[in-house]
Write a protein that binds this DNA or RNA. Sequence first.
DNA 1: CTAATAGTGTCTTTAAGACATTATGAA
DNA 2: TTCATAATGTCTTAAAGACACTATTAG
Lengths: 295, 295
Amino acid sequence: MEELRDKNGLTESEYLAAYHPGDYENPSVAVDMVIFTAMEKESHNYRKLPEKELCVLLIKRGGHPFLGKWALPGGFVEPSETTEQAAQRELKEETGIDNIYLEQLYTFSEPGRDPRTWVMSCSYIALVDSKKLNVSAGDDADRAEWFSLKFEESLVSENEDDSGFEKTIEYTITLSGKSETIKSVVTRTIKRSDKGSQDRYIIKDRGGLAFDHAVIIINAVVRLRGKVEYTDIALNLVPEYFTLTELQQVYEVILGKELIKAPFRRKYSYLAEPTDDVTKDAGHRPSKLFRRKWK
Amino acid sequence: MEELRDKNGLTESEYLAAYHPGDYENPSVAVDMVIFTAMEKESHNYRKLPEKELCVLLIKRGGHPFLGKWALPGGFVEPSETTEQAAQRELKEETGIDNIYLEQLYTFSEPGRDPRTWVMSCSYIALVDSKKLNVSAGDDADRAEWFSLKFEESLVSENEDDSGFEKTIEYTITLSGKSETIKSVVTRTIKRSDKGSQDRYIIKDRGGLAFDHAVIIINAVVRLRGKVEYTDIALNLVPEYFTLTELQQVYEVILGKELIKAPFRRKYSYLAEPTDDVTKDAGHRPSKLFRRKWK
DNA sequence: CTAATAGTGTCTTTAAGACATTATGAA
DNA sequence: TTCATAATGTCTTAAAGACACTATTAG
């Protein structure tokens, strides 16, 4: 098998040996993570089951830009690793969290998204069982905090004609932590026509969030809501042993609406297998404990 | 409102004015596009409807690395644009195609994926109506060619225990163009357990494809197959006026299986609105023409 | 008339939504 | 015994799968 030579008469290995990167400008590539967990609010009535809420981990910025605002955990990718490995490494370094469900979300590349320089963000969704949390271990632990997430979506406008349509949605996310509550407003305009498609996010009110992280969080919630209904992704937010009611609560906080018990169980209980154990010391009938079925 | 100062006593604007990027190594970021179209094979029997096939545009490499192999159209992102704008620009420059459906697919970042240097690929799916095609206009037109795509998937192994599961799938893609037929084999190993999740692609036989483009194409097909059933994405592959049978054929080439007519129409005809026109000169009953409903 | 597709009817099966009923344990 | 949740039954409605039947054109 003879080696191909290019127009300069070089074989591939000769070409590679002589290759040196040109002087093109390259972006920094960061990974940013939207780490979700489903946490229990404590309950006063001993008979009542605790409610769950969807929480996101944020880290307070200790330097410019966006000093004092809250940002998603993340960091820069190194040449020897994939973005996913970078996400895993940062997760471990910053928060002490390990062994976690990770899924690439989207790469954000708006040139002005970082005021310092050209930085793209390859974002990830991470899901973690709140019982396993031990954020105190990481470097940034003192600046890290879980925020409960309220997600609202409203249709601002919708126009349609023969050749396409355009619609604008306004998202409001409210993040409540121990020390403060922050709120961001983002509009999303979707245009679709025979001239192509466009989907653009504009930050109306950044609130207490740094960079374009409100947009990233919104994308993450939309993805999570979409996937929860046709995958087993929700099981990453539940402890090893759980009741079907707990699982239903996880679905409810993700979807932001109540579900009816019987059809929920019919639809999703195949994801879990029963154990011989039951909950104890509840002020009512004990509930069977289930484990994840890996299918 | 007083300005925050960081530990060096600088305000944000002072910090930004003094900021200069460090000497960290940055990757090149390319965009690569999987451009799909649904093309008609010509038919011999005047009464028979032409069959459709799913095609992908490839460009023959004119230099190292992978000289002579086929690659996805793409190029490097410039600092003044988003990855999506880069994709649009490259599409126009390389192929003359404009006004097209574009959707970000995934960012591939395996350090060794480009033998020259550190290059990440932010990949896109593009969908275009084959009647609108005019690839002859672009710079690379003489090296560009449409390949029909055959996509096969088989389960190689599946293991499961109490704490998780692991399964391996083998994908074979066969691309047939005018001049040649190329075939690539890729295995995908999915591991999911309480110790996290992993999804890894290994190129078993690169065949005539350059870089990791076989992996990108496989991801694109999987995405397309997933989205076709619950979105109106397929309508981007059909001309302005089309019959429901044509639309069904598009679904069939994407899904790689035959569908039954009546339930197909019940499920998807809401995506289209009838016109007063019908097909002419078919050797059989004329068919009503529909237009896309933008809903 | 014939070949081939267009378009619709209908039967079966499955699943979702909604709500009601019964079961059970701690205080 | 009571409160609150567990667990399941059932009625209704909607949709998917499968197939059959009728309609319509060019040649």
